[in-house]
Amino acid sequence: MSHRACVAAKERVSDPGRLRRELRALLADRSRDASVLERLCTGAVSALPVDGAAISVTADTAGQGYSGASDPASAHLNDLQFALGEGPCWDATRHGHPVLVGDLTGPAGRRWPMFTPAVLAAGFQGIFAFPLQIGAIRLGALDLVRARPGSLEGDALADALIVVDVAALTVIDAAAGDLRGPAGLPLGVGPDAFGMYRAEIHQATGMVMAQLGVSAQEALVRLRAYAYAAGRTPDEVARDIVGRRLRLDGDLPG
């Protein structure tokens, strides 16, 4: 219940800054025996008008997949999509945009002849899948399920998209933390630690790719690891890279 209290937000107007802070606090709280992805899913269920959440990461820097869910039913539905090879999670990842189906009993549910009946049988009528992606970097997907039908819109959608952003950067930062050794990363260094809005961060990702001969995902991991190690925000570091005042050829600072 403590996590529900932490993200008690169902009736308020969307406040992106506050939701980001709450999710960050949830991620930093290591007192519970739950993985980062599980905590994020629990936070999503508390903050959003949904009944279950699952995150599947299709590739980390080691090339392995992993996942987390708010509860066993959501975890099962997530696994089922992979077993069946169909479902909104697949479509969201393939097309690179959210797949939002407020009522699976309607025509939209027919897209997945095997998966839809399984979701309905599990007691859920709405499913909302979001790709975890940063441009061409594809990290996985977030699935949200809801017992009652109804679309996800307005503030609820805004909040869901913020959870998606935080989830994507959490996956990146988990890898960035690995670069810093087993102690991991102090999540949420600055107020804009989760900001990915500036063009420079994406331009800098491309430049670091070319500088180091690494993938886009690896480049962003390195950029963020560098920023944390230097005690600066990723945006500041990105600006220096684009301005050609900094190259990431060398070692991490400090």
Binding site: H97, P98, I134, G135, A136, H202, Q203, G206, A210, Q211
Partner: peptide, 22 residues
């Protein structure tokens, strides 16, 4: 779905600009 698609397209272009610029 479509707004998010357009926004992602732009991010991909920024990343590609970075590669080409470097």
């Amino acid at each position: 779905e479509q707004l998010q698609h357009a926004l992602t397209s732009r991010v991909v272009i920024e990343q590609a600009k970075g590669v080409l610029a470097e």
